[in-house]
């Protein structure tokens, strides 16, 4: 009894030491064996979901022969990771879900400047003014609504009108979602903190149903839990792809309304990268025809470089009357937005 317990413990300890030794060897072997072929491996920190971009990465590997080592994570957490790693970061490229995370890394001076021709490809709204990161795809904020319950004609032009008591109990949104928070930040930029507080309090007075994320909001609309929800434009397509046809459509706000914000996912190359050429090729690929076509056709997002048409159901990007805010400024306003949401009690 006693003997077996201790034999087992000893065996476990031995196994652990062995594993620790192996673990210690692995990275060492990587750094010593730096032959030219090895240089063609690119480490990507991806804040974009595996479900959305894994196919695109595979396509990139086939087309270029460059191998990708992808670490998936949450955009904000990966940005924090890069900030902690500093110059020792193993990452070559940071591919983020939102501009805020890219801005945080750029601000610490951890990105290198991108090639002018890549930058110029992309609409000015969707890139860093200093050329440190570039947008890869756009996401429009919309009011998704149940087509069985509402005619689009009954929907207001501005998101602010949803504070009207007639919408009580009929609306919902995901307050913890970073795209929703970016919209609140945009509203602060455009209309100031007081107006935004009034708006949020008005929304809250209408008993909104709060969802975990965009897709459950869309599912809530489809299930008639609510009639209208504030989400990104492509979720109705994603949910339909998983759940089958749903009676939900997108309504775009007009007149530069903050509710019509178009946010961007984007990419930057780390200054500490030792595979700069491959990293730039990666950025070139995402903003080029192949990448842009993928975002238009596979993730139902907006291409940000001209020349690739958005999916057929989409309102063209230049027809969306999106508000005039600088996405790279938005990063700094996320915090006040979160504070405000917490203060009003929506977070």
């Amino acid at each position: 009894m006693t003997r077996t317990l201790w034999t087992r413990t000893a065996a476990a300890a031995a196994a652990l030491l062995l594993l620790a030794a192996c673990g210690a060897d692995e990275p060492a072997a990587e750094t010593t064996g730096a032959d030219p072929a090895e240089e063609q491996t690119l480490t990507v920190y991806s804040g974009r979901e595996e479900e959305l971009v894994a196919d695109l990465f595979e396509q990139f590997e086939t087309d270029t022969g460059i191998e990708l080592d992808v670490r998936y994570g949450d955009s904000a957490e990966l940005a924090a990771t890069i900030l902690e790693e500093g110059d020792s970061s193993p990452a070559d490229v940071f591919f983020s879900q939102d501009a805020g995370s890219l801005g945080a890394v750029a601000q610490e001076g951890l990105f290198q400047e991108l090639d002018a021709d890549v930058l110029e490809r992309v609409d000015e709204r969707f890139r860093s003014p200093d050329g440190l990161w570039v947008g890869t795809s756009g996401r429009g904020r919309v009011a998704a609504y149940n087509t069985d319950l509402i005619d689009e004609g009954d929907l207001p032009d501005s998101i602010v009108d949803f504070t009207d008591p007639q919408w009580k109990g009929r609306i919902g949104f995901p307050p913890t979602n970073s795209s929703f928070q970016a919209f609140v930040a945009a509203m602060i930029e455009l209309e100031g903190e007081d107006a935004t507080r009034d708006f949020l309090e008005g929304l809250k007075a209408n008993d909104p149903k709060l969802y975990e994320d965009n897709s459950s909001t869309v599912r809530g609309i489809a299930a008639e839990e609510i009639e209208v929800g504030f989400v990104n434009h492509y979720y109705i397509y994603e949910v339909a792809a998983e759940d089958g046809e749903i009676p939900v459509a997108n309504h775009f706000f007009t007149g530069g309304d903050p509710g019509a914000l178009v946010n961007a996912a984007g990419v930057g190359v780390l200054a500490s990268s030792d595979a700069t050429d491959a990293a730039r090729e990666f950025v070139d690929y995402l903003t080029g025809d192949e990448g842009q076509t993928y975002f238009a056709e596979d993730t139902f997002e907006y291409p940000v470089a001209p020349g690739v048409e958005p999916g057929e159901d989409l309102v063209p990007l230049d027809e969306i009357e999106s508000p005039d805010v600088d996405l790279s400024d938005l990063g700094a306003t996320i915090e006040p937005a979160l504070e405000l949401l917490a203060e009003v009690g929506l977070l």
Partner: peptide
């Protein structure tokens, strides 16, 4: 997340041989 970032900081900067490995 706080503990994880602490490990990220120390391991990546001072013990890169163990960073992003099973023992860590």
């Amino acid at each position: 997340i706080v503990v994880a970032l602490g490990f990220v900081f120390f391991a990546s900067n001072y013990a890169s041989w163990i960073y992003q490995s099973i023992p860590l």
